[in-house]
Simulated assay, not measured.
Amino acid sequence: MLDHEPTAGFTGGLTAIWQGYGEKLSESERLPADGLSADLVQGDGYRALFVVLPPAGAPSEAHFVAVVQAAGAEGCRYLTLEHGVSPVDGQAYTVLGEWTADGRHLNLGSGPAAEPGDFLAAVGRVLAQSVPVHAATRAGVPESGKSGGRGLRGLRGLFGR
């Protein structure tokens, strides 16, 4: 996925997958691909497929996804910036998350503002601070049905399941 750009480009290919999976869902579960985009980015010591998802509207939906391969690593990590809403005061916040190859979701703590540069900087900090115990491999992906968030459902097929 990080080695070869699809013929339709990353955004075009992802949009086609998003819409294809949407056709398998009921109308009420579908989310338009409005705002969906994907680009290959190079960071300090990593490269990533950076995905901007349609606007997050409910808790646990993701704003962004980064499928990241650190320099010299065989596998990839699947990091997210997720939307949250405080049940106490209704204030919005973000959470950094990670999906492991065995389908577990890890909460990596408070996230930055939902801005691309802020998220990518946070991705760089996560990579610099940790070595994944259960890093996703090129074939490993989040298991379908684990999230419950609309945005992540549309990405299940992008990574092979």
Rank of each mutant, 00 (worst) to 15 (best):
135 A>T: 04
159 F>R: 05
132 P>T: 03
158 L>G: 13
149 G>K: 04
160 G>C: 08
134 H>K: 11
90 G>V: 07
107 N>L: 05
137 T>R: 09
149 G>T: 09
110 S>A: 15
143 E>L: 15
115 E>R: 10
105 H>F: 13
148 G>C: 01
105 H>W: 11
99 W>H: 12
138 R>Y: 03
124 G>P: 00
130 S>G: 12
128 A>V: 01
145 G>Q: 02
131 V>Y: 02
101 A>H: 10
85 V>T: 12
160 G>F: 05
118 D>P: 01
89 D>E: 03
111 G>N: 04
82 E>S: 14
94 T>D: 05
128 A>G: 12
112 P>Q: 06
120 L>M: 12
130 S>F: 03
160 G>P: 02
112 P>K: 08
133 V>Q: 14
91 Q>V: 15
137 T>P: 01
147 S>A: 09
79 L>A: 01
153 R>C: 10
110 S>L: 14
139 A>S: 14
149 G>F: 05
84 G>F: 06
90 G>D: 11
158 L>A: 15
127 L>R: 02
110 S>C: 08
133 V>G: 12
87 P>E: 07
116 P>N: 01
89 D>H: 04
108 L>T: 09
127 L>W: 02
107 N>G: 00
102 D>S: 13
119 F>Q: 05
157 G>N: 15
98 E>P: 03
147 S>H: 06
104 R>E: 14
84 G>H: 11
124 G>E: 01
145 G>A: 03
80 T>C: 09
135 A>Q: 10
79 L>R: 05
115 E>T: 09
133 V>W: 11
117 G>H: 11
127 L>G: 03
148 G>K: 09
144 S>M: 13
126 V>Y: 06
139 A>N: 12
79 L>C: 04
99 W>C: 03
130 S>A: 13
78 Y>F: 15
116 P>S: 02
79 L>W: 08
98 E>G: 07
130 S>K: 07
143 E>V: 14
118 D>E: 14
81 L>H: 07
88 V>I: 13
92 A>Y: 02
89 D>I: 10
101 A>C: 00
112 P>Y: 05
97 G>E: 01
103 G>Q: 03
102 D>V: 09
82 E>Y: 05
121 A>M: 02
121 A>S: 10
90 G>M: 10
123 V>N: 06
130 S>D: 06
134 H>V: 10
150 R>H: 08
121 A>W: 06
100 T>F: 09
103 G>W: 07
126 V>Q: 11
153 R>D: 11
